[in-house]
Design a protein around this nucleic acid. Structure first.
Lengths: 211, 211
DNA sequence: TGACAAACTGTACAAACGTACATGTACGGG
DNA sequence: CCCGTACATGTACGTTTGTACAGTTTGTCA
């Protein structure tokens, strides 16, 4: 049965190229400015090719946004592994984030998806999921509230990179994360609220106190 | 001298209504989806009216974006006055930010302009200016670096409100700002970098240590 | 090799767009 | 009262858009 071996002129590769071109354009000109003709020109394919693989322009847009989302998801996965490998410390987080800022494409992909999320509920669910993921792997070490605050700050860092020419200093990011994640030193206050999950919760790993 | 008294059918009010309708639409559907016809329908004016007051659609767009920018600027001014009035403290900032989050329109205006800033250099200059302003009135009290970090965090809070249904707790915002703005308690470290502008720089005002 | 299906491509068309403009209407000075 | 000017409005036109589709090319199997 010629089911699996069926590949005449490699339509799947073509489809990927179209999606890739659309994703590039979304990053450059925004989701709403996307047109069949621009995608076709960018991908180097005739107009008809863009309509054959996707029933409507919305379908093509969705595929491109999801491709960008996959990029973001992969970067989050990489970051999570790296963070868990050498301990969830402000210094470690700051170093990885600062490195991540140098990958302009990744930052722009994140920005493009978050921007698209404002007017598309399904994409918004994606963005929320990412928030929760980041919170999820900081939370066991520093508690849900501080983890959430750190994730919010990280989002702010990404947007700062989009608006400003010079990225934030790694030291600034580190100090801020340290302040967010570290409980106040000598708190004589009642501390009524939850002080959940001490650092001892983490499965150890090799966590150097200083980088 | 019929210069000042000239108002036949109040064209200026009409112009304002058109700009206002355009600003609403930008918040709802994004800058790129704006059309003459949608603006006319929203403002309740004929199509021709939108073309008479603005030579091109770009001009109308610019006017609407600047109207949104003015809203944001005004909110920043109000916030600055309020913050300076009772001291630049984490608790005070957190309270004002948390209150600001309840004004959905203001948050959306900010988000719309920042989003537009990504693809428009002139609007990006505006967004940078706002960053600098916020940094500017936190900086004298807590130093430029911590002020910058706080501003970044605040941007993150605004974006969080756009993506999530439930806004962040005021206590979470307060604790995070406290961590960002407060120097580590007993720092035996060298602290080589700038520890600029102590709290004594501020012109006093009535700054309660606790809210 | 011949034939069939899958993949490809250029063209066409209705709808919506930005914009121009001729016509209509209201108002203040004479 | 009337007239000129500024404002208002509807219509029309050339372009660009999404989408459909007839026709062509390409690769595979009998």
């Amino acid at each position: 049965m010629s089911e699996a071996q069926r590949r005449r002129r490699d339509p799947e590769a073509r489809r990927r190229e179209i999606v890739s071109a659309a994703a590039e354009l979304i990053v450059e000109i925004g989701v709403d400015a996307l047109t069949h003709r621009k995608v076709a020109a960018r991908a180097g394919v005739p107009l008809g090719a863009t309509t054959q693989y996707f029933a409507t322009l919305d379908d093509l847009r969705d595929a491109a946004v999801h491709a960008l989302a996959d990029e973001v998801q992969e970067r989050i996965d990489i970051t999570r592994r790296a963070v868990l490998a050498d301990g969830v410390t402000p210094a470690g987080l700051a170093r990885l984030i600062h490195e991540g800022l140098r990958d302009a494409r990744a930052v722009q992909a994140d920005r493009a998806v978050v921007t698209a999320a404002v007017h598309d509920p399904r994409v918004r669910a994606l963005a929320r999921h990412w928030s929760d993921e980041v919170v999820g792997f900081i939370s066991p070490v520093h508690g849900p509230d501080r983890a959430r605050a750190a994730a919010v700050f990280i989002d702010g860092v990404l947007w700062h990179a989009q608006i400003h020419d010079e990225p934030l200093d790694e030291s600034l990011i580190r100090d801020a994360l340290a302040g967010i994640l570290t409980p106040p030193a000598a708190a004589s206050a009642p501390a009524a609220a939850a002080a959940p999950a001490a650092a001892s919760d983490i499965p150890a790993a090799s966590a150097p106190a200083r980088a």
